[in-house]
Design a binder for these strands. Structure first.
Lengths: 216, 216
DNA sequence: CGATAATTTGACCGGTTGGTAAACATTACA
DNA sequence: TGTAATGTTTACCAACCGGTCAAATTATCG
């Protein structure tokens, strides 16, 4: 046989698991830095430490690789929002959602840039994922936030745009890292800017969402 | 003569002005959608309605085109921040800065995406611009904001991260337009999302920055 | 008009890129 | 161990891409 990817129906070998893992890791590195078109298969192969035909034995096309990577990453990327608990304390829930998103921007910047690249260029490959699972999750959590506002637990506001603004402010520190560093100056070594950002964003969102007159 | 770009030292002809304008317009269209590497000279030539060699007669390399485009756009892109007036009413100044940035995201999304693409991929060509003019301008305005906070006109906060969060929230509606539309649903026709965003962001930032105890 | 400079085009080139063919090597397993 | 399936490599290709060249066309101006 010469169809390794067809082995998807069968159980996968140890080698398949290992190699596919190494390839996707390398693909994340390269795609997130150069975008889909800017990345080359040779580059990914080199980072993965294998020859190009060998890589193409596991993923038959560049696009298949990209698709596999996106779908895998999208799932974990939405975890912070999934954890938003309708039964928790509203302000505390939003605060820790912001913290989690900011931690992801710090710890998984490549994943963030992968999506940014994709969406920036019109999301040609993942439009279905956006309109399906992503929209469903956001709709669900927006309803939760709206109910908190209705109950007077937080200020009345558009829950969708609240979520957008949390996404954008936190992911900014991953996607626009170069700009952030350039503007803040030379102290690029540590994670200080993330701590400063956390303080600022907490102040902004929590104060901005506080209920002025707690009489309910 | 065969050196049209060397004509820079001389006055430019009518034809040069027109064609360079058309080329940069086409380049903006293509670069903003596909990034530097993803854009092809043939594509740009086609959008500009001329042959590839003809285009290369005006800009000798793809990189020269990109550089010319970036430097031109960066200048107008920073105008909203330049207008932030140290002598104006602090809250009103910040409010109208947010409004101006959001209007730019609505009216010039290609320009926004051009920068986003560039910075996302490590800003290989404009690092100097970031560390030079851009940092200088941000430093200047951050000092203004800090003085407002010191004077008790707005809440104490990190001015750099305030600027970052205004940038990210507003540009989000240009750069991640596809995602915003996918999440908000089918009503993609109008600009309603920008009006909703304006309302939300105003509430968020102005409430978040208000001084709680106005005793100064 | 005539001539000189500016502009435009079709044909082409070398390097890169995604992908293939087929021989060779290794592993899994009866 | 033998052998069939799986994994790896070398050599290669066709399409694409940025850029050149020389010839043709058009604008400029005395």
């Amino acid at each position: 046989m010469v169809l390794p990817r067809a082995a998807r129906t069968q159980r996968r070998t140890r080698i398949q698991e290992e190699k596919e893992e190494r390839i996707l890791e390398a693909a994340l590195e390269v795609f997130s830095l150069h975008g889909y078109r800017g990345a080359t298969v040779d580059q990914i192969a080199e980072v993965a430490g294998m020859s190009k035909p060998n890589l193409l034995y596991y993923f038959r096309t560049k696009e298949a690789m990209h698709r596999a990577l996106i779908t895998r990453v999208l799932d974990t990327w939405l975890d912070p929002l999934r954890e938003l608990d309708a039964l928790g304390n509203p302000v505390a829930e939003i605060r820790s959602y912001i913290r989690r998103k900011l931690e992801m921007a710090r710890d998984f910047p490549r994943e963030s840039r992968l999506f940014a690249n994709e969406i920036l260029q019109g999301a040609p490959n993942i439009e279905d994922e956006l309109k399906g699972p992503l929209k469903a999750l956001v709709d669900e959590k927006a309803a939760v936030i709206r109910s908190w506002a209705k109950a007077g637990k937080i200020a009345k506001c558009d829950p969708y745009h609240l979520i957008f603004s949390i996404w954008s402010t936190t992911q900014h520190y991953a996607d626009f890292d170069v700009q952030v560093r350039a503007v803040l100056g030379q102290d690029n070594a540590g994670d200080g800017r993330f701590e400063d950002a956390a303080r600022f964003l907490e102040q902004l969102f929590i104060t901005g969402l506080e209920v002025k007159d707690p009489a309910s």
